[in-house]
């Protein structure tokens, strides 16, 4: 999933302090799972903003909350079609995709981000999410034992580990697993250490962000 983290309330207040009518817009997908932008968080943020305005003596402020199934699909975003333009600002607590898609759709309404979108990751345990994928557009996991050096090695080495791998940990942080140690352990476990001996070719990064904004176009499903 896309993992996001809450922005400090102070930062959000800074965006909307001069607004009088604000919609906090949650999303039911990834950001709900990572407890940054779902219905609960929308409720808390809206409540906090209401109390902020009241405490500032601003009596006429209105803060509403709404949570959509997704903010990255036209059909769900259409649900706020009739109300979007009533607000001075929408604070979207979806990922960066949701914030932008909402802004594109409601061209004349100010949309602010309420979370920091962080990475594509997994829930390792409650309250701990870690990165697994950088969406480079050309998956090599078949050759690295199912562990990605692009997202999990601090130097994204294709022929690692570097000399800084120590006791299975990365040189930049003793709590961080060395991706190449994980790869080697895993190749050993599946009896494919022969894959380690192969020199990895230079990567074609044109499918990564380096190639400019990307798209996936599927004629087999397009109508």
């Amino acid at each position: 999933m896309i993992v996001a983290d809450k922005k400090p309330v102070e930062e959000i207040i800074e965006y909307v302090k001069d607004c009088r009518k604000v919609l906090v817009l949650g999303c039911n997908e990834c950001v709900t799972v990572c407890e940054a932008g779902g219905k609960k968080e929308a409720g808390m943020l809206a409540s906090a903003l209401r109390m902020y305005y009241a405490n500032q003596g601003i009596e006429d402020a209105q803060v509403d909350e709404r949570t959509l199934e997704r903010q990255c699909d036209h059909e769900y975003l259409e649900e706020i079609r009739d109300i979007a333009d009533q607000y001075d600002a929408i604070v979207s607590i979806a990922c960066g995709v949701g914030v932008q898609f909402t802004a594109e759709k409601y061209h004349n309404t100010t949309v602010y981000p309420g979370v920091n979108t962080c990475f594509l990751g997994a829930t390792e345990q409650r309250g701990l999410w870690t990165e697994r994928c950088q969406a480079c557009g050309q998956c090599i996991l078949a050759y690295t034992g199912g562990i990605c050096p692009v997202s999990r090695c601090a130097k994204r080495l294709f022929n690692g580990p570097c000399g800084g791998s120590s006791d299975g940990k990365c040189e930049i942080n003793k709590e961080l697993d060395c991706a190449w140690q994980l790869i080697i352990d895993r190749l050993k476990a599946i009896d494919r250490l022969d894959l380690y001996e192969k020199l990895f070719d230079i990567k074609d990064w044109s499918t990564d962000r380096a190639g400019g904004p990307r798209k996936v176009q599927r004629e087999d499903v397009q109508i």
Partner: peptide, 8 residues
Amino acid sequence: VHDLDSMQ
């Protein structure tokens, strides 16, 4: 950057 690694 790490467009290439040392071996590459």
